[in-house]
Write a protein that binds this DNA or RNA. Sequence first.
DNA 1: AAATTAAAAGACAAATTACTCTTAAATATT
DNA 2: AATATTTAAGAGTAATTTGTCTTTTAATTT
Lengths: 149, 149
Amino acid sequence: MLLSKSCVYGLRAALYLAAKKNGEYHSLREMSEELEISFHFLTKILQQLTADGLMESYKGPNGGVRLSRKGGNATLFDMVIAIDGPGLFTQCALGLPGCGSQEPCPLHESWVDTRSSIENMLKKTSLTKIAEEGKEKHFRLTADGQFSW
Amino acid sequence: MLLSKSCVYGLRAALYLAAKKNGEYHSLREMSEELEISFHFLTKILQQLTADGLMESYKGPNGGVRLSRKGGNATLFDMVIAIDGPGLFTQCALGLPGCGSQEPCPLHESWVDTRSSIENMLKKTSLTKIAEEGKEKHFRLTADGQFSW
DNA sequence: AAATTAAAAGACAAATTACTCTTAAATATT
DNA sequence: AATATTTAAGAGTAATTTGTCTTTTAATTT
Ligand code: SF4
Ligand code: SF4
């Protein structure tokens, strides 16, 4: 798997918030139900994202989470880094330490190419752009496609 | 992580055998020591590859494993499929079922592109080609670079 | 035939990832 | 002030991946 489940859930939640745009707080309960993600698990994941400054939260009635300024301008890459860390973009095809820093292997060139094609794709894709396209084209965020933007 | 550890170990072992080329059997003990992979774990992994017809094994003194005809002509893609299964090439960026078969999301196009760039890279890279280049250029198969072709 | 070598198979253990539950802290409403 | 709402934090459980150990099976050597 390219991305961990935590990461995928985090992305879905971030897209959810980006689509609602207006900087309102949305409760985790609401999000977990609409996105069909375990409430407590989602809580954990979004805690990471708020700790990382990509989201901000507010406690109490009508509280919830929303994208921070930083989060609103973020790309998929930023989200992936915040949750899965940089491993995907630094680690080596053969699991050897120090990719590229020592004598390379024949895989190196092709590997580094595809690795940065992943990286570039994630970097050029901003949350808000995706969310807008998502609303236009009615893409789904849930397995059953029941989620409406 | 793109590839599981099992998969990475399997690839290293396959490259090892491809580099030795002459269709001799190599014992798992020898390979596990040279490649610095746990003997028993490597055994399990290569059992999968022999079950899949990519390698063949021989018991008893001077026994071991070697690449089968099929394995000798295999690409990295074949190895990955045999160990990690097709998930990497079929699963979706957002973890939704049925990628592309239902209404797509805005991620779909970029996602499918990078996904097939991974796939193409693995498909165009044959084990034996890599092993030859590896010997020429003295690339490393182990963390410490001590392994010699 | 007996002993040795090496893979196959299966049970087991540790580590990581995925997920759940409970309690605490902050904010709002009454 | 008391109660309700909602996130934070932490402990605990389940599942998967990773790694180990033991026994069995096939082949060779003596
Ligand atoms: S050269 Fe190949 S083996 Fe060496 S670090 Fe880069 S990808 Fe890994
Ligand atoms: S369109 Fe997007 S969400 Fe839908 S299956 Fe393809 S990658 Fe996944």
